[in-house]
Amino acid sequence: MNTKKALLLFILAALFLAACGSAQPKTDSGSFKETVLARYPELKTQKMTTAKVKRVVDGDTFELENGDKVRLIGCNTPETVKPNSPVEPYGKEASDYTKKRLTGATVYLFNDAGDTDKYGRLLRYVFIEGESVMYNELLLQEGYANVMTIQPNVMFSDRFVKTEREARSKNKGLWGAKSASTPSKTGDSPKGGSGKNSEDANQTAACPDPQIKGNINSKKEKIYHVPGSSSYEQTQAEAMFCTENDAKKAGYRKAG
């Protein structure tokens, strides 16, 4: 009788352990990655890494615990840390928002065709652990950034343009700020206004380090700004060009 009971208890224990094993959930990282890929299937073939954020530099740049710096692909927040340059309108808000969201957070990083920029920063699409909306897109969605597409990292360029267009229509963030719709004295407003054509934000540059900024002002005029010009530093680029000739071919004129 004791032998039968022992055998029965052994069988029940084995069945219990098997049931527990089969019901065991997937690892958090695996399950979260599947959620991300369901929302952004374009990333299925891209390399993914995970890391923890050590500190935030500004709205679109941060440093990992291992010392690597990451620059968000496809979006550009107003400057706050450029040497000898004033803080751009809505730059502090964008920087504070990213500090609040990313500092100390575990992030999932996906690359596009390119790996780093000229400063050695990793160019990545970023996800905060547990949040399936890409952080690059979230900044555009909430009006903390404008689109800046540079080849070869163009996987989500159309999606980002659409997201920015929606943020503008709702006057979110920087698009609702007074400075976003106030033309400069010359009429070549570096910020532009609500009448800008978001489609032009999808202009791209083929060289590795484009310097010429393209922008559309409140009068819907396409203007390009070269390094050293009066409005260059405060201009939020919607298009980047390698040469002035490239800008002119795209229908832009030089800032007066």
Results as ranks from 00 to 15, higher is better:
86 P>N: 14
92 K>H: 03
90 Y>I: 09
64 L>G: 12
68 D>T: 10
103 T>G: 00
116 T>E: 10
82 K>Y: 11
78 P>D: 13
69 K>R: 15
61 T>I: 09
69 K>E: 15
59 G>Q: 08
102 L>I: 05
108 Y>E: 02
96 D>R: 08
68 D>F: 06
65 E>M: 09
90 Y>Q: 12
71 R>D: 12
63 E>Q: 15
64 L>W: 06
75 C>T: 15
67 G>H: 05
106 T>M: 00
107 V>S: 03
67 G>M: 06
67 G>C: 05
89 P>R: 03
98 T>D: 01
91 G>Q: 04
72 L>C: 11
100 K>F: 03
65 E>G: 03
87 V>G: 04
104 G>I: 12
106 T>L: 00
107 V>L: 01
72 L>N: 08
115 D>Y: 04
84 N>V: 08
70 V>W: 01
92 K>A: 14
116 T>D: 02
75 C>F: 05
98 T>Q: 02
80 T>Q: 06
78 P>H: 10
94 A>Q: 08
72 L>F: 11
106 T>V: 09
74 G>D: 13
83 P>G: 11
95 S>K: 14
103 T>S: 11
83 P>T: 12
88 E>W: 13
99 K>P: 01
81 V>H: 11
100 K>G: 04
85 S>V: 15
107 V>H: 01
101 R>E: 14
66 N>V: 07
83 P>C: 07
90 Y>R: 07
65 E>F: 00
70 V>F: 03
101 R>Y: 00
69 K>D: 09
100 K>C: 01
78 P>N: 10
113 A>V: 14
64 L>T: 13
77 T>P: 02
85 S>Y: 06
111 N>Y: 00
112 D>P: 04
87 V>I: 15
61 T>D: 10
84 N>S: 15
105 A>W: 00
59 G>I: 07
63 E>M: 14
74 G>H: 05
78 P>M: 12
89 P>S: 13
110 F>C: 08
76 N>M: 13
88 E>C: 05
69 K>A: 10
101 R>W: 00
89 P>C: 14
61 T>A: 10
59 G>Y: 08
82 K>N: 13
116 T>V: 14
103 T>L: 00
83 P>L: 04
112 D>S: 08
65 E>I: 13
115 D>L: 09
74 G>E: 12
58 D>F: 03
108 Y>Q: 01
61 T>L: 04
58 D>G: 09
64 L>H: 10
95 S>I: 02
83 P>R: 06
93 E>S: 10
82 K>Q: 15
89 P>N: 12
85 S>L: 07
73 I>E: 08
68 D>R: 12
102 L>E: 09
101 R>F: 00
93 E>R: 05
88 E>M: 14
97 Y>F: 15
81 V>N: 11
93 E>W: 01
79 E>T: 11
58 D>K: 07
66 N>L: 07
102 L>N: 04
91 G>I: 01
76 N>I: 10
